[in-house]
């Protein structure tokens, strides 16, 4: 029986689609059978981030409206044996599907897949309601900025109200140099404010831009972000993975302090 995960944030541009692509690909690399669903109808993006934009025939709305079978709309990612994408429709809007239809779709995919990952649109309107309808758990993405954290708080409240029991936080685009000089909230600060469990911290890494340029998720590669995303994938599987040392240069003193903080 597969698990349905919604990747959401409230605020736009904080890394939902990138996270969906990388965590999904990471889980597929860990031998799980994964389907990524782009629920952002009208503004589809997951296909280009995954590099699968040229292979779309049918989309989410076609499936929901019964124009095709689910299998026909799923795009198999040839780079990984267990990874599939259900793209969104570009020429429709959020009202083309209902939360009930999304829940039914997710439930139908549970038999076939280990993980069904929903890439949620920004905002708290219909698109958000569609994306969370069938979800068992949520990954809330934020960056260490006041606007993103505020929206994340609102989203966490809405997830609770919709009885999504397991919500984990990902702090994206952290710059350890800025944190160190006191000009950026740390992941610890964000966790303290939002009071939800952390599942990962992604450093601000220019390799992310390169990877989306190329349409190849960088999870598992020898980059800081690639490692951080792989760690999140492992933590989703329930593994206890220690957090990365994000700052390159660190003195003995701060290392000791970090060690003490962790224990």
């Amino acid at each position: 029986m597969g698990e349905v995960i919604v990747v959401t944030s409230g605020k736009g541009g904080v890394g939902k689609t990138t996270t969906t692509a990388n965590v999904g690909t990471g889980l597929a690399k860990l031998d799980k059978k994964v389907v990524l669903i782009d629920t952002d109808i009208g503004l589809r993006n997951l296909d280009v981030v995954m590099g699968l934009e040229n292979r779309i025939v049918y989309n989410l709305v076609d499936v929901v409206e019964g124009n095709c079978r689910i299998k026909q709309a799923l795009i198999k990612d040839k780079r990984y044996p267990n990874l599939y994408l259900l793209p969104s429709a570009q020429t429709r809007d959020k009202t083309a599907v209902t939360p009930e239809q999304m829940k039914k779709l997710a439930d139908e995919l549970r038999d076939e897949f280990d993980y069904i990952i929903m890439d949620c649109p920004a905002g708290i309107e219909q698109g958000f309601k569609n994306a969370i309808a069938g979800a068992d758990r949520a990954l809330v993405i934020t960056t260490p900025e006041v606007s993103a954290v505020r929206d994340a708080d609102r989203i966490i409240g809405l997830l609770e109200a919709n009885e999504i029991k397991r919500t984990h936080l990902i702090v994206n685009r952290l710059r350890s140099d800025m944190v160190k000089r006191g000009d950026m909230m740390s992941s610890g600060d964000v966790v303290e404010i939002l009071a939800v469990d952390l599942i990962g911290v992604i450093p601000d890494d220019e390799n992310i831009v390169i990877s989306t340029n190329q349409g190849e998720p960088l999870v598992g590669s020898d980059t800081l972000a690639g490692q951080a995303y792989m760690n999140i994938s492992r933590r989703i599987l329930g593994e206890d993975v220690p957090y990365l040392e994000l700052s390159g240069r660190q003195g003995l003193f701060s290392k000791l302090a970090n060690l003490l903080k962790k224990n």
Partner: peptide, 14 residues
């Protein structure tokens, strides 16, 4: 620090 300012403002607004 500006991060502390951010934290305090966020706590209030939330």
């Amino acid at each position: 620090t500006s991060s502390n300012v951010a934290k305090d403002r966020l706590k209030l607004v939330l």
